[in-house]
Amino acid sequence: MREIPQAGASDAPVDVRRAAGDLLVRARNGDGEAFRGLVEPYRRELRVHCYRILGSVQDAEDLSQETLLAAWRGIGGYEERASVRTWLYRIATNRCLNALRAGARRPPEYASYRPEVPLPEPSHRRAEPSWLEPYPDVLLDGIADHVPGPEARYEVKESVSLAFLAALQQLPPRQRAVLVLRDVLGFRAAEVADILDTTENAVTSALKRARGALAQELPGPDRESAPLPDSPQERRIVDEFTRAFEAGDVDAIVAVLTDDASLTMPPLPLEYQGPDAVRNFLATVALRHGRRHVLIPTRANGQPAFGCYQRDPRTPILHAHGVLVLTLTGSRISALTRFLDNSLLTVFGLPRSLRT
């Protein structure tokens, strides 16, 4: 991971600094094209930053757009005490914290969700719903190699995984922001203090609490790593799961799970832990009475995922049945995460229904 050169840094190429300075002058004079040229290199990473803090794809898109609009309106007040990138992160972070304080964020279909059959008693029940949504891998393109700063603890792939994001959502908003800015993006403590308009001591204290809480939520360091994306091992596991799930073969699905595998359905605060609990859920709910599905492959959060469609035996129509994301550990599947909101399919470029 390498450091992003700051605006005006002595090691930045002279022509790059001159070009950025020219864009800034023109943007301050009301040149919209110059402003777009100034902020476009940061658009995607700002959206991912908002997603990490908010956990919602649509909210992240909205807040990143609000950030750029606020920057355009406030470009005249930008004093160049920090880089353009840091200035944008200051706006984005505080907009996200304001949105979290407003407390009005909810997946649109959650309130109307009613299971067709009673759900089994879960192994674990969270106190609050999880507002986490999956993030399409196509929106991550182009940011993996240059976002983390020199003090970052996490690689981009790790910091967008569902396990990391789910753990992050358990933190209070300000701790969440501090940990993302310090350990994911690698901003220095003084920079984070400036972004959040607080002291370095406050940042250090919040970071210590956030790291401690996150360590309790994340898998242990001795856990096997996931196979590389699109590797033969990953393809083999995904193909085995796809065949088993589309055939409604519960035993074959359970055979590819780890001994501590879990099944969750955000935003429902329910978790089914262990192969027996997952088996019971699949047999009595998801695949009961010979229900059949078609899985359309995609990728989310750096992990294999599917648009899930349920067959209707009376018609050739396949009905949307959420987005399913697999977490792989070694040669098996350690988590099944089915997101209930069918509107998420459009985020992945998938239709709400299919015809066989």
Rank of each mutant, 00 (worst) to 15 (best):
Ala144Val: 09
Ile143Phe: 12
Ser130Trp: 00
Ser159Asp: 07
Arg153Trp: 13
Gly186Thr: 08
Asp141Thr: 13
Gly186Arg: 09
Ala163Ser: 11
Arg153Lys: 13
Leu168Cys: 10
Leu168Pro: 08
Ala152Gln: 02
Val184Lys: 03
Pro148Asn: 05
Gln169Ser: 09
Asp137Tyr: 12
Leu140Gly: 13
Leu171Asp: 03
Gln175Glu: 15
His146Arg: 14
Ser123His: 10
Arg176Asn: 05
His146Ser: 15
Ala163Arg: 05
Glu128Arg: 10
Arg182Met: 10
Val178Lys: 06
Ile143Leu: 14
Gln170Asp: 12
Asp183Pro: 06
Phe164Thr: 03
Arg125Val: 15
Val156Gln: 08
Tyr135Ile: 06
Arg125Gln: 15
Leu171Pro: 04
Arg174Leu: 11
Pro150Phe: 00
Ala152Ile: 00
Ser130Gln: 00
Ala127Asp: 08
Arg176Ala: 09
Arg125Ser: 14
Leu179Asp: 05
Leu181Val: 15
Lys157Cys: 02
Pro173Arg: 02
Leu185Arg: 03
Ala166Lys: 09
Val138Phe: 11
Tyr135Lys: 03
Ser130Lys: 00
His124Gly: 01
Gly142Cys: 10
Asp137Lys: 08
Leu165Ala: 10
Asp145Val: 06
Leu165Pro: 04
Asp137Ala: 12
Leu171Glu: 04
Glu155Asp: 14
Pro172Ile: 06
Gly186Asp: 08
Asp141His: 14
Pro173Ile: 05
Asp137Asn: 15
Arg125Tyr: 06
Arg182His: 13
Pro136Gln: 10
Leu139Tyr: 15
Leu165Gln: 15
Gln169Lys: 07
Arg174Asn: 01
Tyr154Cys: 01
Tyr135His: 05
Glu128Thr: 08
Ala144Phe: 08
Ser130Asp: 02
Asp141Asn: 13
Ala127Glu: 12
Ala163Trp: 03
Phe164Cys: 07
Leu139Ile: 07
Asp141Ala: 15
Leu139Thr: 09
Leu132Met: 03
Arg176His: 04
Arg153Ala: 15
Leu162His: 08
Ala127Ile: 10
Arg176Asp: 03
Leu139His: 14
Leu181Met: 13
Arg182Val: 13
Glu158Ser: 11
Pro173Gln: 02
Leu179Ile: 14
Gly186Leu: 09
Asp141Met: 11
Arg125Phe: 06
Ala144Pro: 00
Glu158Lys: 03
Ser123Asn: 04
Leu162Gln: 05
Ser159His: 01
Trp131Leu: 14
Phe164Ala: 03
Glu158Ala: 14
His124Asn: 00
Tyr135Leu: 13
Val180His: 01
Leu171Lys: 01
Val184Asn: 04
Leu185Tyr: 13
Glu128Trp: 02
Pro148Thr: 09
Leu168Gly: 10
Pro148Cys: 07
Leu181Thr: 13
Arg153Phe: 12
Ala127Pro: 00
Gly142Tyr: 10
Leu165His: 06
Arg153Ile: 05
Leu181His: 13
Leu168Trp: 05
Ala163Lys: 00
Glu158Tyr: 04
Val178Trp: 13
His146Gly: 14
Leu140Cys: 15
Ala166Gln: 14
Arg174Met: 08
Gln175Met: 12
Leu181Pro: 14
Gln169Thr: 05
Ala177His: 04
Leu139Lys: 15
Leu139Val: 09
Pro136Cys: 07
Gln175Val: 07
Pro134Trp: 03
Ala177Thr: 05
